[in-house]
């Protein structure tokens, strides 16, 4: 049982997609999680629900709406075309956008839990030490949730690597561009190539297992971040 060029291509593409998605999420999730952790706004509930939606929605629903919104006749599609970016569905960039939304709760929730633990008090203490809110976020809040940040990154990466439904809807199964490992696996099964399918599936299982082992082995130290994930 070994992996052929098509499988390696798909696995590498998967890794690239997961890495890009994780990078975007690590930029996007901390401020959002912080806002959710400390805001007294009445919009907190709806926004938190929106972030958590991908946990309960079939990925195809998300994919479907993204297809409509980002497609040539969708509002966002019109925008990206006007900006000269073309349309995003069926491109690698489009997959990154979709994966970011799809994996958002996996990045935001552990961070939010850890940040709620850190709380506003840290920010107040920092303020009385001549540290403004932005600097305090970088030098006080983020360092205190660094373990949750690693957890968020690993989970985002693993979750993105395992996604299928969204990619199927807006990916288009293009080798080297959008044919990630899970989609190739589907193709292999349909072509009755069980040998190759086994090898690829096993690679995915081992990878996901390694990621989760990493996260859960550190649950003591990571405390509430992982606990929040387990509550689901």
């Amino acid at each position: 049982m070994s992996l052929g060029p098509a499988e390696w291509q798909a696995l590498l593409l998967t890794a690239r997609l997961a890495a890009a998605t994780t990078a975007v999420l690590l930029l996007l999730a901390p401020p959002l999680a912080w806002w959710l952790a400390v805001t007294p706004s009445r919009w907190r509930g709806p926004v938190a629900a929106l972030v958590a939606l991908p946990l309960v929605l079939p990925p195809t629903v998300l994919g479907f709406y993204l297809l409509l919104a980002l497609g040539p006749s969708g509002p966002l599609g019109a925008l990206t075309q006007a900006l000269g970016l073309g349309t995003l569905p069926f491109t690698f960039t489009g997959l990154v956008v979709a994966s970011v939304l799809y994996s958002l709760p996996f990045a935001v929730q552990p961070l939010e839990a850890a940040m709620a633990q850190v709380g506003r008090r840290s920010l107040e203490v920092a303020a009385t030490l001549r540290t403004g809110p932005l600097a305090a976020f970088f030098w006080v809040v983020l360092p205190q949730v660094r373990r949750a940040l690693v957890a968020a990154g690993v989970l985002s990466f693993a979750h993105t690597a395992g996604e299928f439904g969204v990619v199927l809807m807006i990916g288009g199964n293009i080798p080297g561009e959008t044919r990630v490992a899970s989609v190739l696996l589907y193709d292999l099964v349909e072509a009755l190539e069980y040998e190759r399918a086994h090898a690829l599936a096993l690679a995915l299982v081992l990878f996901s297992f390694a990621c989760l082992t990493y996260v859960y082995s550190r649950r003591e130290a990571w405390g509430i971040g992982v606990a929040a994930l387990e509550r689901r």
Binding site: R121, E124, V125, A127, T128, R130, G132, P143, Q144
Partner: peptide, 16 residues
């Protein structure tokens, strides 16, 4: 607060 030259000692532990 960060531009007021106060020092503030909180009631409970406030160390980072």
């Amino acid at each position: 607060p960060h531009r007021r030259s106060v020092g503030y000692v909180f009631q409970e532990a406030s160390l980072f």
